[in-house]
Design a binder for these strands. Structure first.
Lengths: 331, 331
DNA sequence: TTGAAAGCGCTAACAG
DNA sequence: CTGTTAGCGCTTTCAA
């Protein structure tokens, strides 16, 4: 910056001002600075800037797994919205491990990000402590992909997984099935999937149905779905299956196709997530649409709003992200 | 840090040292510092640290689209390897737009990242200039998902797309097909897909086959694949189709199933990317395996190597990431 | 409209 | 093993 200033014949202060509030620099000076800037290929050092100003144009996001389509699309939406707003995205993956989440959050907060996006509402005590501290210092903290029924201490952009579980049970019951099972994710810390399962089973039983939970093996999810159905075929096969996610459902559906099991006549299947494939496969797999892109979009929008100083009261609430069963032919 | 130092009864320098080189602090002092650290919940300010040390524990990655499974898995691998190494990942998405890429690179370089990961080898002149400058200052720059046959000015971790195109053509020719077509991606800036297509067609023609290129519509790729096949069925259907990516192939495959077109007897299909679904669908779609996880892994490993000061000569070359046709039943 | 001075929180280099 | 000094590159605040 010193070089640029020397070339333009001004002080660094003027350069700095030109970069942040160009309207406060005279047109003549601006022209000189512009030229100097081009000739040097200057890139402002953001660390120095952040240190001096106490803010940093970074937004931190902590996600279980970027490789998962659901989260990947949410992240993509974040990138899209933040692009052009001047914020960068600092990303980290926890691999569904709360300890690792804690480390990541600690590391990210060291960057004094303008906001923190974190997945879900379950965190270690230490993580929660850090989140509260940060919030109290004015940092917007958004929990995504979950939503409690009562008001929460952080902003939440997502939906209620208990309701989602009930929704799944209701759908199957309405379609006339009474012998149900929930195929749960094999990932121990995938709390949201387990939560849907619990309330699925609870609701189904309360409605007088048979309902059990089956845990899919870990590993590649489609293969796990396939394996689960294979195992079930060995014993007693429930009349209708609700899956923790579409990948499991797809795997099971494909297995059914390959062994000639009729869907939904012999076994009905309901997925969760509504990935593109659910529409395309066979005559369509019924699934719960979750608006994963919308979650990213709403989160980013809400954060930008908060950061631009819109009072919490005026800040419009995130749009309703209520999940919805998309009925296709597998149920 | 001043507070922590006061509580522990030492100077900030000792705290700083404890955090970075704990073995150089006496056990007694360490214990006190540890306690002070816990009691305050101190989080080091990374901007200040970076500014002072001239390095920053961040690695920048510029990717076309995080929502795409291929890149998402690469990114996931990056996260996994960098986790624990002390580096964070600064991520941005270009949406296959070189202008946007330029902006992003400029913004990211402002963080003085320890390394830069960028997708592909085509960039605007300004981007290239920035990359060269950075490299000359010692920053490892890695171009991923591509590889030129000649030595390149940057580190490349990926494979050669011309060879991949030839590979696809060869596979189909070996299987006895002579009336071929390449279904290209509808994304104009997906250069790598176009490049595979060009050499696919060139090789096929040189081998005496008929070969054309068909451009898939933009939009959701499976739907695009389906639409492409539907269109082709209206006119003359080539005997074998090579697709720019597996999503297109899957869409087309599903369309074939739904209209009762025999695969591969009426039309053969070869995908690219080898996503999990290619294995699972029907009796399997032949596809080119690209080791997308491996690309992330090799990139991260290589970068850590360079950063740990391993001389360029000793740094082991990234493992061979040669694509490979996985033959299943669709060809 | 521009500049001067001070300092953000940390670490490098050296001294003790 | 621990402390002192200086300064990273920028922005804030105030003065001209």
């Amino acid at each position: 910056m010193v070089d640029v200033a020397a070339i333009a014949g001004v002080t660094t202060m003027t350069i700095s001002r030109y970069l942040r509030e160009p309207e406060r620099v005279s047109p003549l000076t601006s022209a000189k600075i512009k030229e100097a800037l081009d000739s040097t290929g200057y890139t402002p050092n953001k660390q120095a800037g952040g240190l001096a100003s106490g803010k940093s144009p970074v937004i931190a996001a902590v996600i279980p797994n970027v490789g998962n389509t659901l989260f990947a699309e949410t992240v993509q939406a974040l990138c899209d919205v933040f692009h052009g707003s001047g914020y960068e995205l600092l990303l980290s993956a926890t691999n569904y491990d709360l300890e690792r989440e804690e480390e990541q959050v600690r590391a990210m907060l060291g960057w004094l990000p303008a906001a923190l996006i974190i997945t879900g509402r379950r965190h270690t005590d230490a993580t929660l402590q850090m989140m509260r501290n940060a919030r109290d210092r004015g940092m917007p903290i958004v929990e995504i992909w979950d939503k409690t029924t009562r008001p929460s201490e952080f902003i939440q952009v997502g939906f209620n997984h208990q309701e989602a579980g009930v929704l799944m049970a209701k759908h199957l019951i309405e379609r006339g099935y009474t012998d149900l099972a929930y195929v749960d994710s094999g990932v121990p810390d995938d709390f949201r999937a387990h939560e849907r399962g619990l309330s699925f089973v609870r609701h189904a039983k309360a409605a007088g149905c048979t309902a059990t939970t089956i845990i899919a093996p870990r590993g590649e999810p489609m293969a796990a779905g396939r394996a689960t159905l294979r195992t079930l075929c060995g014993g007693s096969l429930p009349r209708a299956l609700a899956f923790a996610n579409d990948h499991l459902a797809v795997g099971a559906y494909l297995h059914a196709q390959s062994v000639g099991l009729a869907v939904p006549d012999t076994v009905a299947m309901l997925g969760f997530g509504d990935i593109a494939l659910a529409t395309e496969l066979g005559s369509g797999i019924s699934s719960v649409a979750t608006q994963r892109h919308q979650i990213g979009f709403a989160t980013a929008t809400r954060i930008l709003q908060e950061l631009s100083g819109a009072a919490a009261s005026t800040a419009s609430l995130p749009p309703e992200l209520r999940p919805e069963v998309i009925h296709r032919s597998s149920t």
